[in-house]
Structure formats: structure tokens, C-alpha cells
Amino acid sequence: MGIYVDDFGTGYAAFNNLKNFPVKSLKIARSFVRDLASDLSDRGIAKAIVAIPDGLNLSIIVAGMETPAKWE
């Protein structure tokens, strides 16, 4: 059992929750990946956000990753 944090990085889904609750997975909000194919700044932000669950050994779900171009 554990907690899955939706839309991580927005509103109440904050970093402090990663310490205070038994979080198992983070879902990254669509707003952070919407323009990955065309915006270098968005790519940098998305890479940094994805590094958080990776560093904490959590699973990750990324909203809005429907096209192969966004995975590159």
C-alpha cells in the first residue's frame, strides 16, 4: 500500500509530501510536458522533474506522453 501523487509539482502535491507520506508513485502534470517537442526550456524542466522520482526510487506516470517525439 502506498500513496500515488497526481499532478506532482502543482498545488498541494509538493516536495514535502515525499517525506511525510509513504509515496509510491508520482504523476507528472501534462502542463510540464505539453511542449517538449518544440521548447528546450520545457525539456529541461521535464528532465529535472523526472529525476526526482528516479532518485527516490519511485515509479512515475507522465500525463500527455502520447507521441514518440515527446519521449526523445
Results as ranks from 00 to 15, higher is better:
M1N: 13
M1H: 15
G2A: 15
G2Q: 15
G2K: 15
I3G: 11
I3E: 12
Y4F: 15
Y4L: 12
Y4N: 10
Y4G: 13
V5Y: 07
V5P: 05
D6R: 04
D6M: 12
D6H: 11
D7L: 09
D7Y: 10
F8W: 08
F8T: 10
F8A: 07
T10G: 07
G11S: 07
Y12G: 12
Y12C: 14
A14G: 11
F15Q: 05
N16C: 05
N16A: 10
N16T: 10
N17K: 13
L18K: 07
L18D: 01
K19V: 06
K19M: 12
N20S: 15
F21T: 08
F21P: 00
F21N: 14
F21G: 08
P22A: 13
V23I: 15
V23Y: 11
V23M: 14
K24N: 14
S25I: 09
S25K: 15
L26K: 12
L26Q: 12
K27Y: 06
K27I: 06
K27S: 09
I28R: 01
I28V: 14
A29P: 13
A29Y: 05
A29R: 09
R30V: 04
R30A: 08
R30S: 06
R30L: 10
S31T: 06
S31I: 12
S31W: 01
S31R: 06
F32D: 06
F32G: 12
V33C: 13
V33S: 12
V33W: 02
V33G: 09
R34E: 08
R34C: 10
R34Q: 14
D35I: 02
L36I: 14
L36M: 10
A37V: 03
S38T: 10
S38R: 13
S38G: 07
S38C: 08
D39E: 04
L40T: 09
D42T: 09
D42C: 12
G44H: 03
G44K: 11
G44R: 03
I45L: 08
I45T: 02
I45N: 00
I45W: 00
I45Y: 00
I45F: 01
K47T: 08
K47F: 06
K47G: 04
A48W: 01
I49P: 01
V50Q: 04
V50M: 11
V50T: 03
V50W: 05
A51C: 03
I52F: 03
P53R: 08
P53G: 01
P53F: 06
G55L: 00
G55M: 01
G55F: 00
G55K: 05
L56D: 03
L56K: 07
L56M: 14
N57W: 02
N57V: 06
N57K: 15
L58N: 03
L58C: 05
S59K: 11
I60F: 05
I60W: 04
I60Y: 04
I60C: 15
I61R: 00
V62K: 00
A63G: 00
A63E: 14
G64S: 04
M65R: 00
M65V: 02
M65I: 04
E66Y: 09
E66C: 05
E66M: 10
T67D: 04
T67I: 05
P68W: 04
A69L: 00
A69Y: 03
A69S: 08
K70P: 04
W71N: 00
W71D: 00
W71S: 01
E72N: 07
E72P: 05
